[in-house]
Simulated scan of single mutants.
Amino acid sequence: MSGSEQQTMVALTGARAGTETTQRSRGLPIALRRERRAAWAFLTPALAFFAVFLVLPFGFAAVLAFSTWTGFDLSRIDFTGLHNFAEILSPRSTFVAPILVNTLLFAIGAVAMATVGAIIVAGCIDRLRFQGFWRAVYFLPVVATVVAIGNVWKMMYQPAGLINGLLNRLGVNSIGFLSDPDIALPSVAVVQAWASIGTAVLILTAGLKGIDQTYYEAAALDGAGTFSTFLQITLPLLRPSLLFVLITQFIGGLQSFALIIVMTTDGGPINSTNVAAFEMYQQAFKFGAWGTASAMAMVLFVIIFVITLIQLWIARLGGEETS
C-alpha cells in the first residue's frame, strides 16, 4: 500500500471515528430529552389534578379571604382588605376562643392518644403471629365511613348506651359524654384517636420491622430491661416513623370536623366542641359568609404550617443531639 493510500485510510478512519463520537454526543441529549418528555407525560395527570383540586381552590380561597361573597355570583366579589381577618381575630369574636382553643386541644388530645396507643399496639403486634391479620383488624376503622363511626360511638355514649351500662354495673353513675361541656370535647377526641389509630399502627409496625435485631441482642447481653431497651433503642430508631405519624395525625386532627357534625349538635353543648373546620363549614354553607370562612381557613393554614415546621425542627434538633 502506497503512502498516499495509507494517508487516505487514516483520514477515512479518523472521519468515521469523529462521526461516531459526534453521533454519541448528540444521542445522549436526545435520550435525556426523551426521558424528560416521558417523565412529564407521566406527571401531567397528577400535576393537573393537583392544580385543579388544590392550587386553584387555594388561590380562590386566598382571594375570598380579602373579600366578601355570598357564594352565588362571581361578579359580586367585593374586595374588603383585611376586614375579615380583623373581624375573626377581634376580642369579641369567638374564633380565637373558644374555637381555636378547642381545635388545638382536640388535635393534641387525639394525636397523643392515637400515637401512644399505636406504639403499644405496634409493639404487641410485632411479637405476635399472623401479624398481617392483626394489622388489617386495626386498620378497619380507617376504611369505615366517618358517619358510621360517629353514629356508633354516639349510641355508645348515650345515657342508656353500652359504656354507661358497663359503668352502672360497676356502681358508677351515668356520664353525659356528649351533654357535659367539660367532657364532650375529650369524648369526641377519643373517637378521633380510635378512628385514626390504624394508619399509625401500619406505619409504626413497618418502622419496627426496619430495626436491626442485633441492637436488641446486644442490649440483652448487656442486661438491659424491656423499658430501658424501648427508651434507648426502639424510640430513637423509630424517630422517622414517629415524626411522620405525628405530623400527619396532627394535620388530620386540626382539620377534622366530620365527627363534630355527626356526634354533636352544632358544636355543642355551649360551643364546647366547636372547632375551626366546623366553624368554616357553618360560615360558608349555613350563613353564606364565604369571605369569613376563607379568612378562617387561611389562619388555620398558617397555624398548621407553623406547627409542622416546629415539629420538624424539634425532630432535627433531637437527631443532632443523639448523633
Rank of each mutant, 00 (worst) to 15 (best):
Ile149Glu: 01
Ile77Ser: 00
Ala144Leu: 14
Ser90Val: 05
Gly171Glu: 07
Gly81Val: 01
Leu54Thr: 15
Asp78Gly: 12
Val52Leu: 12
Ile183Gly: 08
Asn84His: 00
Ala114Cys: 11
Ala62Glu: 02
Asn164Trp: 04
Pro98Ala: 04
Val63Leu: 14
Leu74Pro: 13
Phe95Thr: 12
Leu105Met: 10
Arg129Thr: 14
Asn164Gly: 01
Glu87Leu: 15
Ser75Gly: 15
Ile149Ser: 02
Leu56Gly: 02
Pro91Asp: 02
Arg135Leu: 09
Ala144Lys: 06
Leu167Gly: 02
Leu178Val: 11
Val143Ala: 09
Val143Ile: 13
Ala148Gly: 12
Arg127Asp: 05
Asp182Met: 11
Thr103Tyr: 00
Pro57Phe: 00
Val101Lys: 15
Ile149Val: 11
Ala112Lys: 04
Ala114Asp: 09
Arg127His: 09
Phe58Leu: 14
Ala118Leu: 02
Val121Gly: 04
Ala107Val: 03
Phe66Met: 08
Arg135Lys: 13
Ala114Asn: 10
Asp73Tyr: 08
Gly71Asp: 04
Thr70Asn: 15
Met155Val: 11
Val116Pro: 01
Lys154Gln: 11
Leu162Tyr: 12
Leu140Phe: 13
Tyr157Phe: 13
Pro141Lys: 04
Arg127Cys: 05
Phe53Gln: 09
Asn173Gln: 15
Ile77Phe: 00
Ala112Leu: 13
Phe53Tyr: 10
Ala65Ser: 13
Gly150Trp: 01
Leu178Ser: 02
Gly117His: 04
Pro91Asn: 02
Asn164Gln: 05
Leu100Cys: 09
Thr115Trp: 00
Phe79Val: 10
Gly176Tyr: 00
Val143Lys: 06
Gln131His: 09
Gly150Ile: 05
Val142Tyr: 09
Leu56Asp: 03
Ile163Pro: 05
Asn164Glu: 06
Tyr157Trp: 06
Gln158Trp: 12
Ser67Gln: 01
Thr68Phe: 01
Val96Arg: 06
Trp153Gly: 00
Leu89Gly: 10
Ile120Pro: 06
Gly109Ala: 05
Leu74Ala: 15
Arg76Ile: 05
Leu105Ala: 10
Val172Glu: 04
Gly176Asp: 01
Asn173Thr: 14
Gly71Cys: 04
Tyr138Asn: 10
Leu64Trp: 02
